[in-house]
């Protein structure tokens, strides 16, 4: 079966991609000159402690940072595979447990954003494509451009400022103090969700509106549309049965990049809004040269994107009868 071979191939390729990603991640986190021990020693000296050469060498051996790159990489990789992602020096906790704390809020925000993005952009895109060159089309196109042009972090600041003006307190953080225990705290949680979701989904939504609209318009030019119209099929059915179905495939294929985009947006937005997701932790880890933590966060976000891409590939295999063509067009 074509389909099964395609699916198997995708699976193997994803695993291979992940392997290469581990290498890139480790390479990147090892890039900064000096290592964690240097930073540590620096801060110890700054606090007035005395550190001897001997102690530095001991420290380096203790943390294993004096070994060659490839050995450290293989060590790290085998740790990744066996679930030991190392220890965050900065938090003094295992990387896995820190990631675990932030993973669920991250995934939750991403999924909500993803849902909102599709729920808004698909209908709007179809509407604008059907009303090409009309006022509504121009307005949405312009708004779409503006939405794509506003940097995430600025929009986050502006909305936070506005929320401060309107509600008296800036809407920051995600979970109310004490967690979601009652209806009121759930509403509070929803309220705090508004700004991040708007900010993170904005550029993706605007981009998606533009691309779906373009594809709908492309689709309208296809010969089969003329042919189907000549058979007496109504415009409505042409739109909803044929063109929408045709546009569905690229939408599904765009799922992977979409998830990557959401991670981009959520990283910086979370830093500004102080959300309990991975963005702020990553920034802290990078600043402190906490290599295993920053590596772990880079790794987990790449894994999520790869998994998203894989899901979209598999969905595509189900949706599109021409698996062979998909591969050729990839």
């Amino acid at each position: 079966m074509d389909k099964w071979r395609y699916i198997a191939k995708r699976l193997v390729l994803s695993l291979f991609t992940l392997l290469m990603i581990t290498f890139v991640v480790f390479f990147v986190i090892q890039l900064p000159p000096g290592d964690f021990v240097d930073t540590l020693v620096e801060s110890m000296v700054a606090q007035g402690e005395r550190v001897t050469e001997q102690e530095i060498i001991q420290l380096k051996a203790m943390y294993g940072v004096d070994r060659p790159f490839i050995v450290q990489y293989l060590d790290w990789l085998s740790g990744i595979l066996t679930g030991d992602w190392g220890v965050s020096y900065f938090y003094n906790k295992s990387v896995i447990s820190i990631i675990g704390e932030t993973l669920w809020p991250t995934i939750m925000i991403s999924l909500i954003t993803l849902f909102i993005t599709y729920a808004i952009s698909i209908p709007v895109a179809i509407y604008t494509a059907k009303h090409q060159y009309q006022l509504s089309d121009y307005i949405f196109t312009f708004l779409g451009f503006v939405g794509m042009a506003v940097p995430h972090f600025l929009l986050a600041i502006l909305l936070m400022y506005l929320s401060f003006k309107w509600f008296g307190t800036p809407l920051m953080g995600l979970f109310p103090e004490g967690g979601i225990v009652s209806w009121a705290s759930f509403l509070e949680f929803l309220k705090r969700l508004i700004i991040p979701v708007i900010v993170i989904s904005l550029s993706g939504t605007c981009g998606l509106i533009r691309s779906i609209r373009a594809q709908m318009l492309d689709e309208q030019e296809r010969p089969y549309v003329l042919c189907t119209r000549a058979r007496g099929v109504s415009e409505k059915k042409l739109t909803y049965k044929y063109q929408m179905r045709a546009v569905l495939n690229p939408i599904v294929a765009g799922l992977g990049p979409m998830i990557a985009g959401i991670f981009n947006g959520s990283t910086i937005t979370a830093i500004v809004l102080m959300l309990p997701t991975q963005g702020p932790v990553l920034l802290k880890a990078l600043r402190a040269q906490d290599v295993y933590l920053s590596g772990g966060i880079l790794m987990i976000s790449a894994i999520l994107v790869v998994v998203g891409t894989l899901i979209s590939d598999l969905l595509l295999a189900v949706l599109d009868p021409r698996v062979k063509y998909i591969e050729e067009s990839k």
Binding site: Y224, T228, G232, R245, A246, D320, P321
Partner: peptide
Amino acid sequence: IRSIRGKNISMIFQEPMSSFSPLY
């Protein structure tokens, strides 16, 4: 006019390959 298209007057086109939607 839709009741005439395909019923009373039919049309066939140059490119059979692109005259069908590939997805159905």
